Simulated scan of single mutants.
Amino acid sequence: MIATSRDDGSDVVVIELQREDRRNALDLALCEAIREAADAAVAGGARVIVVTGQGSAFCSGADLGGVYGPDFLKALYGMLHHLTRLPVPLIAAVNGPAIGAGTQLAMACDLRVAADTAKFAVPTARNGLAVDAWTIRTLADLAGAGRARRLMLAAESLDRDEALACGLADRAGTLDDAIAWAREIATFAPLTLAHNKLVLNGSPDDDAAIEQSFAAVWASDDVQEAALARTERRAPVFRGR
């Protein structure tokens, strides 16, 4: 259901959804497995997490053969919102269609690398379901209000090129390209990345945490390491402390 691997020689962990027979559709167990795998990656020292799908689909949405009940909704939205709160960046390697909950999973990641077969859609108007306000507002923030209205009200989809043009996807590329980008990001200052992500994804309720995070960055050893690296004309080695 889930495969987790660590990229050789880096602090990058790849989480692969492995329900290829269901085009990686999300059910309650898979939602919980994604959350647990992400937490385990962070606990194991990952500085960047890459999420992708096995086979030709990133994630085809919620499993239509499953049960749409409170337990599934709690697992789905608990997982999505939890990913946005993790202290490390997540990159979605969108290797194929990301439909419904697949688009939501891609948006819960911080960056999206899209293959030429990638497609994004949230067709709730076609199946009588609903997504939470975070999904719709995040979609509008990333893709723009006009395209969000097309996806949510006209049940249209965006292909890779349009997703890139509007900002829903950040780069074109494969899983290997996503891992290469993750390797680069993994060399950056972890406390700074965590602070930036907290501000980008946070709410007014996070103001105290943001102030504490800001102070921690400026008081960190990594600030001194960056200054020393500049004088020694070398790349800094950040420790996250």
Results as ranks from 00 to 15, higher is better:
145 A>D: 09
170 D>C: 08
215 A>Y: 09
176 D>V: 15
221 D>Y: 03
142 L>F: 09
163 A>D: 00
51 V>R: 00
21 D>R: 12
1 M>P: 12
198 L>S: 07
220 S>D: 09
142 L>T: 11
151 L>R: 00
69 G>E: 15
154 A>V: 11
108 A>E: 03
20 E>C: 05
79 M>T: 10
200 L>M: 13
5 S>P: 07
115 A>L: 07
15 I>Q: 02
126 R>C: 11
100 G>C: 15
164 L>W: 05
72 F>H: 07
59 C>T: 07
126 R>F: 09
178 A>K: 01
166 C>L: 06
36 E>M: 13
33 A>D: 05
198 L>P: 04
131 V>M: 07
66 G>Y: 03
221 D>H: 06
16 E>P: 06
6 R>A: 12
138 T>G: 03
234 R>Y: 10
68 Y>M: 13
98 A>N: 00
158 L>K: 00
145 A>Y: 08
181 W>V: 15
234 R>M: 12
26 L>M: 03
160 R>N: 13
99 I>L: 09
223 V>Q: 05
70 P>W: 10
53 G>M: 03
92 A>N: 05
171 R>K: 14
191 L>H: 03
80 L>C: 06
100 G>Y: 04
209 A>S: 13
165 A>Y: 01
59 C>P: 05
118 A>V: 12
172 A>D: 06
119 K>N: 14
81 H>R: 15
37 A>P: 03
48 V>F: 02
58 F>G: 02
24 N>H: 06
40 A>N: 14
67 V>F: 10
225 E>F: 03
156 E>W: 00
93 A>H: 03
178 A>D: 02
62 A>L: 09
8 D>V: 13
84 T>M: 09
133 A>M: 12
212 Q>H: 11
168 L>V: 06
200 L>V: 13
236 P>V: 10
142 L>S: 11
142 L>I: 08
49 I>L: 10
58 F>W: 06
11 D>W: 06
78 G>V: 09
135 T>H: 03
154 A>Q: 13
105 L>M: 05
124 T>G: 11
167 G>A: 10
221 D>C: 01
76 L>Y: 03
92 A>D: 03
153 L>H: 06
130 A>V: 14
233 R>C: 11
95 N>C: 15
154 A>N: 11
9 G>N: 06
195 H>R: 14
78 G>E: 04
110 D>E: 11
186 A>C: 08
25 A>I: 07
202 G>E: 08
89 P>K: 02
81 H>E: 12
142 L>P: 02
116 D>W: 12
140 A>M: 06
91 I>T: 07
62 A>R: 04
105 L>Q: 01
22 R>M: 11
12 V>M: 07
197 K>A: 10
116 D>T: 15
91 I>E: 02
72 F>I: 08
64 L>V: 15
22 R>H: 14
132 D>F: 05
240 G>N: 01
161 D>Y: 04
241 R>L: 10
136 I>W: 07
165 A>C: 06
160 R>M: 14
119 K>A: 13
